[in-house]
Design a protein around this nucleic acid. Structure first.
Lengths: 189, 189
DNA sequence: ATGAACGTACAGTTTTAACTTTACGTTCTT
DNA sequence: AAGAACGTAAAGTTAAAACTGTACGTTCAT
């Protein structure tokens, strides 16, 4: 646990709290593969979750028992995903990090960062290939056999493009908060 | 390509179509890590995407140049995610697979299958640890120092539970199709 | 019933990713 | 300006996964 806040507490209470926290930490860590992060980085995030103050690399090296490099790259990964943030400490030389406490925001950022990029890449490929296949269609208007096949390809691509367009708008709704109109944060009485 | 439909076409047209398809296949495959599948399984999916008829394991062994075992496990992974489906062929002994053409459905299924399970696991851990920490709170009502810390932990857990509840309802909206009220499939004029 | 075709477990191998140690560039202190 | 503290690149090592070949159980045809 290594949480300096708890030093003066009874051994028993500390152990019980540690166990309760550990369960959550492991559960969070284990499920963070959905965000494409490795188990140990998920674990790092989980450990930061219960810290009430920003942490340094060295502190997490201590608690996690990993090398400083591992913690450093883990922190960067989490930072890139905006799951944690760098924090300015008063007179502190070391970098300080804290978890983003708003998980709705974290969820939204994940899609904005990872999915949006994927959508863009796919759309570019789809559009380019669509143009090429349509050119083929044009050039071989005599060949019925080929027309048949090409038309199916184009249709598939068109469907895919439509889907990505929808996905893009869905992420817009997440980003803007419009999503909460449909699915409110709290189920009101 | 190995697409029997194209046998009688000109070499040039076949090559150009192959290239156009290949671009899409690779793009799809590369971005399927968002669904937690490996590059080669993504590639397998991409290759199935342009097939107009259900495919067999052996056919995909042929096109992908992988072992039958790899294709078999890949097919199972994709099938578990409902990205492809087993299909009954008339007099065919071999298993037949085809891609699910409705990508909105695929997207929804992904969350229902993977995220829902993750939510459940996390919720269970959170609830259990919350009860334990609340018990600690109860037993140490004299210790202000401890109370302070425990209350922060409980608050964090409560926030997390709320978030997971929201996420669960969001997935409900995906599953039921209610999401399309907010984000329609097509942007109508 | 017997044999052939098919898909998958299993064990072993190769490839990839995670992690550590060392070294280096930067920044801050004095 | 010099030196110490800090975070990260780079190279090397260890651990994990992806992949293959073989062997096995099932199913279907004869």
């Amino acid at each position: 646990m290594e949480n300096s806040e708890l030093e003066q507490l009874s051994e028993e209470a500390r152990a019980r709290l540690g166990k309760a926290r550990q369960r959550v930490i492991e559960s969070i860590g284990k499920n963070m593969d959905l965000y494409g992060v490795t188990l140990s980085i998920g674990h790092l995030y989980g450990n930061m979750f219960f810290r009430n103050e920003p942490v340094t690399l060295d502190e997490m090296v201590e608690t996690m028992g990993l090398s400083k490099t591992s913690i450093s790259t883990g922190m960067r990964t989490l930072n890139d995903l905006k799951m944690i943030h760098k924090v300015w400490g008063k007179g502190v030389r070391k970098d300080l990090y804290k978890v983003e406490p708003d998980w709705y925001q974290t969820f939204s950022d994940f899609f904005v960062i990872k999915w949006r990029k994927s959508i863009e890449m796919n759309l570019q490929s789809l559009q380019k290939s669509k143009r090429e296949i349509e050119a083929l269609l044009d050039e071989h208007s005599d060949n019925n056999e080929l027309q048949e096949i090409l038309k199916m390809d184009v249709e598939k691509i068109v469907n895919a493009v439509e889907y990505y367009d929808w996905l893009d708008r869905l992420i817009d709704a997440l980003e803007s908060g419009e999503i909460f109109k449909l699915v409110p944060k709290t189920t009101n009485p």
